[in-house]
């Protein structure tokens, strides 16, 4: 157990990180992500309210669908990344545990006069991820089999009304389920009783998301890093670009037009030595050109993998780099992400 964003969290269960990781890719892993911030934003103008903080197109979200976006600051840096889901009469917002104390007051203030923020304190959040997730859950709630990636439904699981989205943080097909706290233990136990399901800790959560090329706030995203540097331009719609009505638009639109100075890239180290966050990246035989922000051993990749930021002129796939790992310069190259193909269910 380790302290994480004010919670005591398991790094691993008895199976261990590598086994938990591989089980999630092969069958299904159950993650307790109740530490994440959950909130409702009520009111007809809720989408307009949240768009004051994010560059994503929330007004265009159809009921029953969700979207990945980020809160930006006036300098175009990222305050947090989050998922916003349209539940018809209200938006559901899930933010990072480590940032919820910053995000939620910002959202409340932005919503003032437009919408009403209701912070959800009485619901747990779990994720069931992996190729068996659909089979396991649809045995308990048949409606869940057919829903596509990033859609949302309210359905009974074991007689309990749950909010389910088909989403996750592993690159696998899977679900995130918001459940009343009083019922979480029974549902989690029922899921764990299934022979395909194994509980998974923070360690494998990190290796799974790294292989999937997904950002971790605080490592790969921060208040200095723009969505364009982070390779998240795809989250900003044409309407929002044309309107330019989000915090940090000057920098973000400028980088969209001219290209950012630095870019987030996948990095494949040669050999077996993991290159961890903070490792300085050099041009092959040359100067420092960037820093690794997430790196380690990928259990499915079978070796070291990393992501980091490099000067834009070093960001093309195939570019040769060197990583300063302790006293060694480890050869590496820029590679396309993800390291493991996404297997989202598109319907």
């Amino acid at each position: 157990m380790v302290p994480f964003a004010g919670y005591e969290m398991p790094v691993q269960y008895p199976a261990g990180i590598i086994e938990e990781h591989k089980h999630t890719r092969d069958k299904a892993g159950l993650f307790d992500v109740s530490h994440m911030g959950q909130a409702w934003l009520h009111g007809a103008d809720a989408a307009k309210a949240i768009e004051k903080l994010v560059p994503g197109d929330i007004q265009a979200l159809k009921p029953g669908t969700g979207r990945y976006t980020m809160i930006t600051n006036d300098d175009g840096g990222i305050v947090d990344d989050l998922i916003v889901t349209n539940w018809g009469d209200r938006l559901f917002i899930v933010v990072n545990a480590s940032r919820k104390h910053i995000d939620l007051p910002m959202i409340a203030e932005a919503a003032s006069g437009l919408a009403e923020l209701e912070i959800v304190e009485n619901r747990a959040l779990i994720a069931l991820q992996g190729p068996s997730a659909s089979g396991v859950l649809s045995g308990m709630a048949p409606a869940l089999a057919a829903m596509p990636f990033m859609s949302a439904v309210e359905t009974d699981i074991g007689g309990i009304a749950c909010h389910v989205t088909r989403s996750g943080y592993t690159g696998e097909d899977g679900y995130e389920i918001s459940i009343p706290v009083g019922n979480i233990e029974a549902i989690a136990q029922a899921l764990c009783d299934h022979s395909d399901v194994m509980p998974v800790g923070l360690g494998a959560r990190d290796t799974l998301r790294l292989e999937a090329g997904l950002c971790l706030y605080g490592n790969d995203l921060d208040e200095e890093t723009s969505p364009i540097e982070a390779g998240l331009a795809w989250t900003i719609s044409k309407r929002r670009r044309e309107a330019g009505d989000f915090p940090g638009a000057a920098r973000i639109l400028g980088e969209l037009a001219d290209g950012p100075q630095r870019k987030r890239v996948g990095i494949q180290p040669e050999g077996r030595a993991p290159a961890r966050d903070g490792t300085v990246i050099h041009a092959a035989g040359g100067d420092a050109v960037g820093t690794i922000t997430s790196g380690g051993f990928g259990p499915s990749a079978g070796g070291p993998i990393a992501m980091g930021y490099v000067g834009a002129e070093h960001a093309a796939p195939g570019t040769q780099l060197e990583l300063a790992v302790r006293k060694n310069m480890v050869p590496a190259s820029v590679v396309k992400m993800p390291f493991q193909p996404h297997r989202y269910y598109k319907g």
């Binding site: 261990g16 077996r272 070291p304």
Partner: peptide, 8 residues
């Protein structure tokens, strides 16, 4: 330590 992935 748990399962080792690299030894230098």
């Amino acid at each position: 330590l748990g399962e080792l992935v690299y030894v230098e």
